[in-house]
Every structure is written in structure tokens, then in C-alpha cells.
Design a protein around this nucleic acid. Structure first.
Length: 903
DNA sequence: ACCGCCGGGTGCC
DNA sequence: ACCGCCGGGTGCC
């Protein structure tokens, strides 16, 4: 009966762009729901930076209320192929370019196929409301789905309270009157007659209730498919831990599953989506993948390698027989070639080893995708190479290719012949950006794995879109932080997994996000079953048969207070008073938030002074007013500001892609973004694009790029300056020498956000005869690998100290050789500190880890600690609580500035 | 008849 | 659409 086809064509046919834009026009505020398992993310400095303001997209969607409902008609059914069932949800979409009526509103089914139009009289009223984003209009066809010409549609109007009047008036003008919201239609999350519990019960759900509901999402590990263990094929050279065998079993069963995706049922030869009541004849494609959301350090990489080899094809393992000389096996010429040196130098590994024992099947298997594509942040690329090297049995010859660097092959055939292709998000995104020239997007992959998959949480980021359009049936996301900030983040992941119908944001919103944030138990249930279905998550404290998944040595954090010398105190106080005066001025003028970058800069100077007096000499004197001076002077000023922001350790992320800055540019309003990111914003919002952070006017011509030569000089040494020590350096050296006396083999990480500080520390280290190495963001991939390897290896001459810049390396970095961490300066975001500690406190660590945080007494650093703690508590208890309004947020920020500078 | 009424043609926006 | 609407044909009972 139902004529509509499958899903495939739709999701790509409708351009993602227009879909997203249409969402951005909706102005509804969703209560933010913070997850408990990542309880203090999204604090500094993103919060500070009004991150939510820029998003614009759903920031406003957080306080939506139901204005009321209205019965209308869908007409023109016979002209369109889209069909619906009774009680099926439909989407209403403006069609301003309709040649017959500029007010046209089309009606689409869940699949995105057009069903008809809203009758023109009603459309005339809706057009104004929709175009001015006064309300979001959602529809359900209550009955009459089989009508030939028209059918009824029950519409719900959702919007901000302050727009309610305007919506009612506008409808009234056209002779329509909303039926007031009733208890039962609040939760339109589920179409159909069985509505959920009344609104009041739900809204009154306590924080604790919500929290415990949410905690249950991952508690249920007792299901068979998640506790069953599976041995990896012999081709995996390392034996798996029990929880890794569980993950392997689960992932393999996900990849080979023949089940319907979540929320689908088969009824009388039709396939029904039970949440939207949509039905298709064609069986919806299985989701052959999911989210492996284990905590960092539980071995996601190894598990993934095991999956690749164990579920090599057709549900069978890699055809591996040790030392068998069958005619298929090429002579083992490649042992020598399989050395890492080759990887590092040429970024090709196992180069030349073409043998794979499937040659005889080659012809019949021609169409079978063969290659697994692994995408990871640059910082963990070398980790993948290491782990592949380490865990794949040396007798196994896989074709592998690191798709990275200017020499990378642009030939999709080369890629498709590999077994494993490794690349980075940045390569993925930039290849995708250069239209039509992305071999990654030409290959049909056997499997795509996104490592640190939360990097695609921003749906507008280039890398997210690029990942979405990769061709592969098996799609995996590896992440230690499944939901960073809120439910919103989950959507990008689901959309990558091609989980229908959630690939379309509207259905995600209507069926899960809104019901859950409004406290609808049904919504929570749906979310719960969804997550249970597609994710596996274990934390470091999860247990298998009563024993912890991972038995890690203890981790102790000590705070060592530092008292500055008289001279240091004098300098500090001078600068503090200067800064306080400047900030007071901003307070008096009411321009605190407008001078955000300047204030950050002032605070930065103080933080640097806590470390070492030489640190802040490169900062130009206090911020000067904008708007005057020659263009060159302005440019110079902006470049200085950018330098300041880049080195302040507070904003190394681009607020658009939420990733580290690539090709940083600064706007005239002094906000720093990746060039590609901000250019895209300008492109999509033109002609009047606004700064995502402050809503000031933006123009491409006015972006100032960071000159490359300056970038180098930032890290440059102050060779001409005579070296002096500081209180903090003294304390550090004292501790290091002490430690060496106790046990000269103990290795330490010295962590700072200021690479210049790390350079300063090099001098006394050398003087005291320490052997050290260094890892920071400015180093090439090759240098990093060298530094990590020399530090991690157990040889006698191996360095005992690594100077580490706080954010260098990212999550995958493994520095378990160290068991001491000296954190020289506190970070804005406590999560960044924890992440850093986890680089040595992870699988493979044999000793207790002792962390020392140096904090200068009576300084901005102490105030930072106070705010960190406050935020930790707040975030931990804030689950399900109402999100701050924009003005509350601003007030918080202002208070924080006051706290920081003792105002 | 500048009407009513009849019945055929027709049909989203 | 077993409707409404349009516009041509038609014209007492």
C-alpha cells in the first residue's frame, strides 16, 4: 500500500545545508540536560565565552512552551508520493519560493517525502509565524491518512513565552484560534493516542529522580550481548582483558546483526517506526555499528583492532594460519619493512606488503568493500600506528596506509585496496572542503571508525559533515565522553551512525530531546533503550564479576602552596592594581563582557607572574581602545590580541568547531576562530553575518590572519635575557632533586600551559643534570613520536622528565612511564587537568601516581581554584536543573571576574 | 435574465 | 470530490 521507498535516497537527497538552516530559524529553548558522567565539562572558558550565545541555533530553543494546538488540513495529496499513517508525525516546512503562493507550507512525512501542502488560508497565517520564528509548528495526522485529496493535521505551536501573544494575534487575524494546551498534548514526543503522563508530575520530578533515571542508562550491563566474551583471532598478537573481550563480542555482534534498528517493528510486511508511526515497505537498514564509550584507558584502540581482524569479512576472522606456506601467501618479505621508522619517515607503513590470503576470492569479492577507515585527531595518530604495530601479530600482513601529509595519494583506488587507512579529522575536513577532490569520499569503506568521536559533536563543523558523507555500512564512534554537554551532542553522533529517523534533527527533537528535557518519562525510556541498543560504556570503576575492569594504582593530588618573594610580590601587586583599575573601569562603564579578551589578557599576565616574572614581558601593555589608529596599527593590535588569546591557555579551541585552532584568524571584534570555520559562518549567514561570540558585524576582508613567522617567535627563547629563577621554579627543582635522591628512576611530567615557561625550566634542569624531553603543540608529528618513545622506553639513558604543555597530545597520549606530575599552573577547566593526569594514570601504570599542583598563595591562582571547585559542585548537582538564562549567565561571569581579581 | 436554477467540468500550493 | 466552486446554458407551469 505504502509506496514510499527506502531511506537511502532521502537522507542525502535533501541537502544537509538547507535542513540545518531551517533548524537554525527555530527559536525554541530546550532545557539543557547535563549528563552525570561528565559532570564538569563545559565550564571554563567556553562558558565564559558565551558559547551558547553563538550557537544561536538551539540556544533559544531552550525555553519553549506549548502555545496551543490547531486542527488544519493538508491538501493536494494526490500530487505527491509521500504517504502517512494515522497518528503519524509530519513535518511542516516553509516553501517561500513556491510560484503559486509565497506563503506555501509543505507537509512532509518522517521520511522527508512530501505529503501535500497546508491549505492556503492557513498557510498565509503560518508563513508569518514561521518566517519570523515566532513558533515552531509541528504536525500529527490524527486520522484520514488514506484520504485521496485532503487530510486533517493536528498542529502544535511551540515557542518562547514572549512570542505567544504575537502568534495568537497573527492566527486570530486570519480567523484561527488555538485550542489551549492540555495536559495530554504537552508530550507530543510520541505520536498517536497513547500519550504519556501529565505534565505536572513530570516537571516536578526531582533532580535526584532524574539523575537516577539517567544513571540507569549505562548500568544495565547484565544483558547477554554485553557480557558475553569473545576471543580475538590469533592475528591479534596481544591477549585481551575480559572487558575487552566483552566489547569485541558486542561489536562483532553489532556488525553482523540482522535486527531491525531501534524503534522499528515488522507488522504485516510493513516496517513501522514505533515512535513516529512511520511505515515503509522496504526494510530499514540495520545500523551495523554504534558507540564504544568506554572510559579512556580501557583499550578502545586495541578492541577496535581486534574487531577489524576478528570480523574481517563475512563474519569471519582474518585468514591467518601461523607459518603456513600456502600458495596464497607471499613470501614474508615484509618483516623488515614493517618497522616504525618507515612509518614515521614516509607516513606509509607496511609499505609494499601486498599479500593477503584472499587473492583467490579476489574476483568474486570485487564489490566487497575491504578497507577500514580510521579517523582520529592528529595527536593520537602516532598512537594508532604504534598500537597497530604492537598488537597485530608480526606474521600478519595487512595493507595499511596513513593518509596524511602533502604526499598522500589522491587515488581512491589506492585507498580502497588497503585493509586499514588512517587519517585525521583535519585531513578529512579539508579534503571534503576542496570539492570533488576527496578520495576519502569516493571509496566505499568496509568500516569507518571515528576515534575521539565526540569531536563531531558540533553538527555545523566541517569535519562533522565530512564524516557524515563517508560511505560505509559499519560505522563506529569511539569516545570516552559520549555526551559532553548535553543531549544535543548525542544527535550528531546518531546522525553519523545513520540511525533513522534521527538523522533528521526535527525527529530527534520531537521524539527524544524535548520529551526528555521536559521530564517526560516516556522520552527518557526511549532515550534509554536507544542508548542501550547502540552504545557500550564502561568506566574505570565498572566491574566484571565483582572485580574492577581496571585495577589502577592510586592517584593522589597534592596542592603545594607557594609564597612569592618580596620582589615577585611587588611586581605582582603592581600589575594587579593596574589590572584591577582597568577592570573596574569596565565595570563602571558596563562593558565588562565587551572587553572580554582584554580582561582575559589582564588575568593572563597575573597568572604568568605567578609562574615567572619573565613570562609576561611579551605582552603589550594594557589593552588599548579600538577604533582609532591606522589600519596597520589596528592590524598590529589585533595580531597582538590574538597572540595573547592563543598563549593564554584559555582559548585554544575554536568556538565553532570546538577543536583546536587551525589557521587562526582574529575578527575586528577580537575573537579568534579557525579561518575555515569562520569563513563558513560568514558564507552561510551572508549578507549580514555576525560574530558567533559577540554578534558584531563580520566581514571576510576584516579577518586578520596570524602571521606564520610570529607563530614561531611566540615559542621563541628569550636568549638575550639573563636567566633568573622564580619561587615556583625553586619549589619545582627542590621537589625534583628530592625525588631523585629518593629514587632516581622515577619519571615525572612537568606540565604548564605556557610553553615559554617550560623553556625557562629547561635551564635549571640542565644545570642540575636532569635528562629531559619535551612535548608541546608546536612540535611536528615526527618530533612528538620521538619524544614520546624516548620517554616511554625503559632504556638507561631515557629521560626521566618530560616537559609537557597542558593540552598537547590530546586524550590518547600515553605517558605511563611517569608516575609523578607537577602541574605548574592551574587550568581554567579542571577537566583539562584531569585529562592531563590521565595520560599517566591509565592502563599500564604500575605505580601510584602523585600529582603536585603549585598554587601561589593570595593570587589569582587561588581564586581560580575556588572557582574550579564551585563549578565542579555546581555541575555535579545541576543535573536536570534549569539552565541559567543568558542574563544569569552573564551575571555569573561578571561575578567570576570579580572573584578572580578580588573586586 | 443586470436574476435563479441546472448540470458538466473540475480540483494544492 | 458522495464535496465546493466555476462559468455556460438556459428560462412559467
Amino acid at each position: 500500500m505504502r509506496a514510499s521507498g527506502g531511506w537511502g535516497a532521502h537522507s542525502q537527497g535533501k541537502t544537509a545545508q538547507s535542513k540545518w538552516l531551517s533548524w537554525e530559524h527555530h527559536h525554541i529553548n530546550w532545557l539543557e540536560l547535563r549528563s552525570t558522567w561528565d559532570f564538569y565539562s563545559n565550564i571554563w572558558p567556553e562558558d565564559f565565552l558565551c558559547r551558547d550565545d553563538f550557537a544561536g541555533t538551539d540556544e533559544d530553543t531552550d525555553s519553549a512552551v506549548l502555545f496551543g494546538t490547531l486542527r488544519g488540513n493538508v491538501v493536494g495529496l494526490r500530487y505527491y508520493a509521500g504517504v502517512v499513517n494515522n497518528n503519524e508525525m509530519v513535518a511542516l516546512q516553509r516553501q517561500p519560493n513556491n510560484p503559486y503562493d509565497k506563503n506555501a507550507v509543505q507537509v512532509n512525512n518522517v521520511n522527508g517525502d512530501q505529503v501535500g501542502h497546508i491549505k492556503k488560508e492557513l498557510a498565509a497565517a503560518l508563513a508569518y509565524i514561521m518566517d519570523n520564528k515566532l513558533a515552531v509548528v509541528e504536525g500529527v495526522v490524527p486520522y484520514g491518512a488514506n484520504n485521496a485529496f485532503t487530510m486533517p493535521v493536528q498542529m502544535s505551536f511551540w515557542g518562547k513565552e514572549e512570542n505567544k501573544r504575537a502568534v495568537l494575534d497573527r492566527l486570530n487575524m486570519h480567523g484561527f484560534k488555538l485550542a489551549p494546551p492540555t495536559k495530554s498534548n504537552w508530550f507530543s514526543g510520541k505520536a498517536g493516542p497513547s500519550y504519556s503522563a501529565p505534565v505536572h508530575a513530570a516537571v516536578q520530578m526531582t533532580t535526584e529522580q532524574l539523575k537516577s533515571e539517567f544513571d540507569k542508562l549505562f548500568e544495565d550491563l547484565k544483558e547477554d550481548d554485553k557480557t558475553r566474551e569473545m576471543e580475538a583471532t590469533k592475528a591479534v598478537g596481544t591477549s585481551l582483558l575480559p572487558h575487552q573481550k566483552q566489547a569485541l563480542a558486542w561489536m562483532v555482534s553489532r556488525e553482523n546483526n540482522k535486527d531491525l534498528p531501534p524503534f522499528w517493528e515488522e507488522r504485516e510486511n510493513l516496517f513501522y517506526n514505533t515512535i513516529t508511526n512511520f511505515a515503509v515497505k522496504k526494510r530499514p537498514e540495520n545500523v551495523l555499528g554504534g558507540i564504544l564509550a568506554d572510559d579512556m584507558g580501557l583499550g578502545k584502540t586495541l578492541t577496535t583492532i581486534a574487531v577489524i581482524l576478528t570480523n574481517f569479512y563475512d563474519g569471519k576472522p582474518f585468514p591467518f594460519e601461523k607459518k603456513t606456506s600456502s600458495c596464497d601467501v607471499e613470501p614474508s618479505t615484509s618483516k623488515k619493512e614493517a618497522e616504525i621508522t618507515l612509518l614515521v619517515v614516509t607516513l606509509l607503513f607496511f609499505s609494499g606488503s601486498t599479500s593477503i590470503q584472499t587473492t583467490k576470492k579476489e574476483d568474486s569479492d570485487k564489490a566487497r568493500p575491504r578497507a577500514t577507515l580510521i579517523i582520529c585527531p592528529l595527536s593520537v595518530l602516532s598512537n594508532w600506528i604504534d598500537q597497530l604495530e604492537q598488537h597485530i601479530s608480526p606474521d600478519v600482513h595487512l595493507n595499511s596506509y596513513v593518509y596524511y601529509g602533502p604526499e598522500r595519494s589522491k587515488d581512491p583506488v589506492v585507498l580502497s585496496k588497503q585493509d586499514i587507512v588512517l587519517t585525521t579529522y583535519n585531513i578529512l575536513a579539508s579534503d571534503y572542503g576542496s570539492r570533488g577532490d576527496s578520495p576519502l569520499h569516493k571509496v566505499t569503506w568496509l568500516r569507518v571508525v571515528l576515534d575521539e568521536g565526540h569531536t563531531i559533536r558540533n553538527p555545523n563543523a566541517q569535519q562533522t559533515k565530512a564524516a557524515l558523507y563517508l560511505k560505509a555500512q559499519r560505522r563506529w564512534i569511539l569516545t570516552g565522553t559520549p555526551i559532553q554537554n548535553s543531549l544535543k551532542d548525542l544527535w550528531s553522533l546518531l546522525s553519523f551512525l545513520k540511525l533513522k529517523p534521527f538523522t533528521d534533527r526535527e525527529w530527534w527533537h520531537r521524539t527524544i530531546q524535548r520529551p526528555v528535557t521536559m521530564g517526560d518519562p516516556g522520552g527518557l525510556r526511549r532515550l534509554q533503550s536507544l542508548i542501550k541498543n547502540i552504545t557500550l560504556r564502561r568506566t574505570k570503576t565498572s566491574k566484571i564479576k565483582g572485580k574492577p575492569v581496571l585495577e589502577l594504582p592510586e592517584r593522589k593530588v597534592f596542592i603545594q602552596h607557594i609564597t612569592l618573594t618580596e620582589e615577585e610580590t611587588r611586581i605582582y601587586q603592581t600589575v594587579k592594581h593596574e589590572s584591577r583599575a582597568a577592570i573596574s573601569r569596565y565595570f563602571n562603564d558596563g562593558t565588562v563582557l565587551a572587553h572580554y579578551a582584554d580582561i582575559l589578557g589582564l588575568l593572563l599576565r597575573l597568572r604568568q607572574l605567578c609562574c615567572h616574572p619573565h613570562l609576561c614581558t611579551n605582552i603589550s601593555s594594557s589593552a588599548s581602545p579600538e577604533g582609532d589608529g591606522t589600519p596597520d596599527e589596528l592590524r598590529e593590535k589585533l595580531i597582538n590580541k590574538m597572540k595573547l588569546v592563543l598563549s593564554s591557555g584559555s582559548d585554544e579551541e575554536c568556538a565553532i568547531c570546538l577543536d583546536s585552532l587551525t589557521l587562526p584568524v582574529i575578527t575586528h571584534c577580537a575573537h579568534v576562530f579557525c579561518k575555515p570555520c569562520i569563513c563558513e559562518v560568514i558564507q552561510s549567514e551572508k549578507p549580514d553575518a555576525k560574530c558567533p561570540l559577540c554578534r558584531n558585524e563580520l566581514q571576510v576582508e576584516n579577518l586578520v590572519e596570524y602571521p606564520l613567522d610570529k607563530l614561531d617567535s611566540t615559542a621563541g627563547k628569550k636568549a638575550d635575557q639573563e636567566w633568573i629563577s622564580s619561587s615556583k621554579v625553586n619549589a619545582l627543582m627542590h621537589a625534583l632533586i628530592d625525588l631523585r635522591k629518593q629514587n632516581p628512576t622515577i619519571k615525572s611530567l612537568i606540565v604548564s600551559q605556557f610553553t615559554v615557561f617550560l623553556s625557562l625550566i629547561e635551564t635549571p634542569l640542565r644545570e642540575s643534570g636532569f635528562v629531559f624531553t619535551r612535548l608541546d603543540g608546536s612540535m611536528t608529528q615526527k618530533k612528538r613520536v620521538e619524544a614520546i618513545q624516548s620517554f616511554q622506553n625503559g632504556q638507561l639513558d631515557s629521560p626521566t622528565i618530560m616537559l609537557l604543555s597542558l593540552k598537547a597530545g590530546g586524550v590518547g597520549l600515553n605517558l605511563t612511564a611517569a608516575s609523578r606530575v607537577f602541574l605548574m599552573d592551574p587550568a581554567w577547566n579542571p577537566a583539562a587537568e584531569d585529562q592531563c593526569f590521565d595520560r599517566c594514570h591509565r592502563l599500564g601504570q604500575k605505580q601510584d601516581v602523585v600529582i603536585t599542583k603549585f598554587i601561589v598563595k593570595n593570587s589569582v591562582e587561588e581564586n581560580m581554584l575556588a572557582i574550579q571547585n564551585k563549578k565542579r559542585e555546581l555541575a555535579a548537582g545541576a543535573f536536570g536543573a534549569k539552565k541559567q538564562t543568558t542574563s544569569e549567565m552573564k551575571q555569573t561571569k561578571i561575578n567570576e571576574i570579580k572573584t578572580l581579581i578580588d573586586l
